[in-house]
């Protein structure tokens, strides 16, 4: 994207000069001083063809941005932010919570079928757990402070009153702006460390075809990360990248190249943000109450051998071959 190009495009309003309209009738003797004067109606007509048109001129004060006389495009952004964004956000967050509740009631907690083996193997080392929780902790604060921007005035403001809500929102804004940086670091670290185990493969199709063991009771085989986890990984990496790029522009408006671009990045940031929240809610569910033994992977880093055999059979086999499984040489799973 070329910022310069955008800036120049915004000068569309100047084109009005070339669409000079005939002037209002004046008596024949009079010189009509406004024969080809620029008229507001010309801008209004241009707006019908292009709602993003801006009316720009020249200004003598140092603030060059003030040369934009009118920019009605904010109305579309407002309609989005106050309507569509609220709707998408509510559907994504409340919808996902409902979905998970229904799933829990229907499926219940996914147990280790063979029961805990009592022996464990290392699934995530200390550094992996650090980068996961760095990203996770930041994300939770970023998500709550982000939701506050769209839903706070409807949900929180009536409860705690204007001044308290402003205080909360200021803390939320500062947290959002500063925790964005460790969040971006966490995303980058996870990309580097885990990408080799997250390349999609043919095995993933089989895993998906078998319903991932979520729907039925059989456990399709998987390497270190199954297809579901790969979806989470790529959602986090790609969604995190989209949030990072849009967020940095929003944070540094001088580099975004105008208000229309800021509106655009705001839309991206909001939509990707609520989708990420929905995805992560599902991730939190399956990593905690949704599945027995799953939390240990990121908690202590040590998972039960039987859990690992059921959910990541091929990975356990690989680890056994490498001699990473304590308790001697076992028969590979299956």
């Amino acid at each position: 994207m070329r910022l310069g190009a955008h800036l120049r495009f915004l000068a569309l309003g100047l084109l009005l000069a070339f669409a000079a309209l005939p002037a209002a009738p004046a008596s024949a003797q009079q010189v009509n001083p406004t024969a080809n004067a620029v008229k507001e109606q010309q801008f209004l007509d241009a707006l019908k063809g292009n709602p993003s048109a801006e009316l720009q001129g020249r200004i003598t004060i140092p603030d060059g941005k003030a040369a934009t006389l009118e920019r009605p495009a904010g109305r579309e952004w407002r309609a989005f932010h106050q309507g569509t964004m609220v709707r998408i956000g509510a559907i994504a967050v409340i919808g996902m919570l409902l979905l998970l509740t229904v799933f829990y009631l229907v499926r219940g907690r996914i147990k280790i079928e063979a029961g805990p083996a009592g022996r464990t193997l290392t699934r995530f080392n200390a550094f992996e757990r650090f980068m996961h929780w760095l990203t996770a902790a930041c994300f939770i604060v970023l998500a709550l402070s982000g939701l506050n921007v769209t839903f706070g005035k409807a949900v929180l403001l009536p409860l705690i009153g204007p001044q308290a809500f402003t205080n909360v929102s200021i803390v939320a804004k500062w947290s959002h702006n500063y925790l964005a940086w460790p969040f971006m670091l966490g995303i980058a670290l996870m990309l580097v460390v885990w990408i080799k185990d997250n390349i999609p493969s043919a095995l993933d199709l089989k895993w998906i075809a078998a319903g991932g063991g979520i729907v039925g009771n059989k456990h399709p085989e998987a390497r270190r990360f199954n297809a579901g986890q790969k979806v989470i990984f790529w959602s986090v990496v790609l969604g995190g990248a989209a949030l990072s790029v849009s967020g940095v522009y929003l944070l540094f408006p001088a580099f975004a190249g105008g208000v229309l671009n800021l509106q655009f990045w705001n839309v991206i940031h909001g939509v990707v943000g609520v989708i990420m929240i929905a995805v992560i809610l599902a991730h939190i569910y399956i990593g905690s109450i949704g599945m027995e033994g799953a939390f240990d992977a990121m908690g202590s880093g040590e998972v039960d051998l039987n859990w690992a055999k059921e959910h990541h059979s091929l990975w356990v086999a690989e680890e056994m071959q490498k001699g990473h499984v304590p308790g001697g040489k076992l028969q590979p799973a299956e």
Binding site: P51, E76, A79
Partner: peptide
């Protein structure tokens, strides 16, 4: 994109 989105929103 934004125009379409804006139109869609409206």
């Amino acid at each position: 994109f934004f125009k379409a989105l804006g139109a869609g929103a409206t």
